[in-house]
């Protein structure tokens, strides 16, 4: 390869230039829409589209004056927080069982737990709905909570499992020999040592829930809206500048949350 490059230096340079151009195009394609949404959220024009007429925060103001949007935000945050916490607690226990204990049917449970990862969300959505109908349970917030927990559980399990596998059993064994029972060892040794994975897993799960629309549309009770379903509903009437503002807020939350989490984990690791 280096020989070819030495013989035809020009070709190598063109190749690199093309590659660079291609990368820029890919990034543009990925990030331009996001930038556009954020820019337009500050546009003073009524149309919600280009050209920019002036800088304004009025759409954010309108957003928070709109009770249905504020309600959707509340629902989304509560849903993301609780389903994330539920998935984290269940996920930790599942990961512990899968990594630290051997039992019959372990492989099966492992596969079963990662099934929601592979299953198309539409199928998951319909399946849970049919099941609820079968046991004649009406759609409710609880159903939404259950659904979101199931959807984000595999991510938590995977993240925590990876951390546990990397954690030598001898820390826990040392604690046992020193007189700590299983529960004390879990809280004193295991939990602190896997805490970065727990924080990461929770944020992952919460973000997934906050973002989710497909399955949510199937599960939500009429009248309950999450932020994504609210945007979806608003889009059906018109593209209003409010939607841009809402989109901007969504973007900031879903990007900022994991960043804060990552920072916290690193800070945490350093002080130790």
């Amino acid at each position: 390869m280096s020989m070819a490059a030495a013989r035809q230096p020009g070709e190598g340079r063109i190749g690199w230039a093309l590659l660079r151009l291609w990368s820029i195009a890919v990034y543009l394609f990925m990030f331009a829409p996001i930038v556009v949404v954020i820019l337009l959220a500050f546009n003073s024009s009524r149309s919600g589209a280009f050209p920019m007429e002036g800088f304004s925060l009025q759409w954010f103001g309108k957003l928070f004056a709109n009770q249905s949007i504020v309600d959707a935000f509340k629902t989304s945050l509560i849903l993301a927080g609780t389903s994330g916490a539920l998935a984290t607690v269940i996920g930790i226990m599942a990961a512990l069982a899968l990594v630290r204990y051997s039992f019959k049917g372990k492989e099966g449970i492992q596969t079963f737990l990662s099934l929601p990862l592979l299953m198309p969300e539409v199928v998951m959505g319909v399946a849970l709905l049919m099941f609820l109908k079968f046991i004649s349970m009406p759609r409710s917030f609880a159903v939404l909570l259950l659904g979101h927990t199931i959807l984000s559980l595999p991510y938590v399990v995977l993240v925590v499992q990876a951390r546990l596998v990397g954690l030598r059993a001898s820390y826990e064994e040392a604690a046992w020999t020193l007189g700590a029972n299983r529960l004390q060892t879990f809280f004193e040794v295991t939990l602190p040592l896997i805490s970065p994975a727990i924080v990461g897993g929770f944020l992952f799960a919460a973000t997934l829930s906050f973002d989710n629309i497909t399955a949510t549309l199937f599960w939500k009770k009429p009248g309950i809206e999450t932020v994504p379903t609210k945007i979806f509903a608003m889009l059906r009437t018109s593209i209003s500048p409010e939607i841009n503002a809402l989109g901007a807020v969504m973007i900031v939350i879903t990007i900022l949350l994991p960043l804060i989490g990552g920072y916290m984990v690193r800070r945490f690791a350093k002080t130790k």
Binding site: R168, S170, Y171, E173, A174, A175, W176, T177, L178, G179, A180, N181, Q184, E188, V189, P192, L193, K272
Partner: peptide, 30 residues
């Protein structure tokens, strides 16, 4: 945890998130 044995591991297995004091004091807490 009820056997009252002291074990020293090949890879030390000191608790990385605890200070030396807390490491040594660990068994005394129980």
């Amino acid at each position: 945890h009820q056997r009252n044995l002291g074990m020293v591991f090949q890879n030390y297995a000191l608790f990385p998130h605890k200070s030396i004091f807390d490491n040594v004091a660990f068994g005394l807490k129980y």
